[in-house]
Simulated assay, not measured.
Amino acid sequence: MSSIVIGILAVAIGLLFCLRGVVAMRIVIAVWGAFVGLNLGAGIVSALSGDGFLSTALGWIVGILVAVLFSVLAYLYYAVAVTLAMASIGFAVGAAIMAAFGVTWNWVIITVGVVVGIVLAVAAVSMNLPAILLVVLGALGGATATVGGLMLLTSTIELEDFTRSTVTSTIGHDWWWYAIYLVLVIAGIVAQTRVLGRESQLQQQW
């Protein structure tokens, strides 16, 4: 049941971020922040308790509370919004790149994801980033979330698999997931670029 819920959320929010991330940045990043918060809060409970991801009431409660916190902060404060978006996108993209190279799901993938996330987050708060950067990164991150959600909904993977090497082996044997990912990335960049506002800087767009 948890896999279905997370799968639906991942597909819906992933598509929103992929296709409309920069167009309605303030709202979309707040929604993205809620999704990230839910997974982070539930993940912390799972790691500390040893229970399955979102398999207990406590996991849901903490996940929802962190989701609300992240969502509100992302909506109200530009620095938080962009830092949260860049860090989470960086982690997703970094981890996806490692998976694409067939790296086993272990500390290497986590480390690369965290490093890429930190680099993007620091760049986001220290430079006046162009809006087109969020278009590209939003398309990448949104496509990653969407494909992950589709894999959960089709039972290609389960939530428990995200701590095992089976994730990378599953993706490696099914080339069409890469094709879907590529199509989503291209569609996202095209869709957002076509309706991008006049403001060229990310903060002005926000």
Rank of each mutant, 00 (worst) to 15 (best):
M1Q: 06
I4Q: 06
I6L: 15
I13Q: 01
G14L: 01
F17M: 10
F17C: 09
C18Y: 00
C18N: 11
C18S: 11
L19D: 02
A24M: 09
A24C: 07
M25Q: 13
G33L: 07
G33K: 03
A34R: 02
A34L: 10
S46M: 15
S46V: 09
L48K: 08
S49Q: 13
D51E: 15
T56A: 11
W60A: 07
V62Y: 09
V62S: 08
I64G: 01
I64S: 08
L65C: 12
V68A: 13
L69Q: 02
F70E: 03
S71C: 12
S71I: 02
V72D: 01
L76W: 06
Y78C: 14
T83C: 12
A85I: 06
A87N: 03
S88V: 10
S88T: 15
G90E: 09
I97N: 02
I97Q: 03
V103I: 15
I110T: 08
T111Q: 07
G113N: 07
G113Y: 06
A123V: 10
M127I: 12
L129M: 15
P130I: 03
L134N: 08
V135Q: 04
V135L: 05
V135A: 05
V136I: 15
L137M: 13
A139G: 04
A139R: 03
L140F: 12
L140K: 02
G142I: 02
T144G: 08
A145L: 13
V147Q: 00
G149I: 05
L150V: 06
L152T: 05
L152Y: 03
T156F: 06
E158H: 13
L159H: 07
E160G: 12
D161G: 03
D161E: 02
D161I: 04
T163P: 00
T168I: 09
T170L: 05
I171P: 02
G172Q: 10
H173M: 08
W175L: 12
A179R: 05
Y181M: 06
L182P: 00
L182A: 15
V183I: 14
A187E: 03
A187I: 02
G188N: 04
G188S: 04
G188K: 03
I189V: 15
I189M: 08
T193L: 11
G197K: 14
G197T: 13
L202D: 12
Q205N: 14
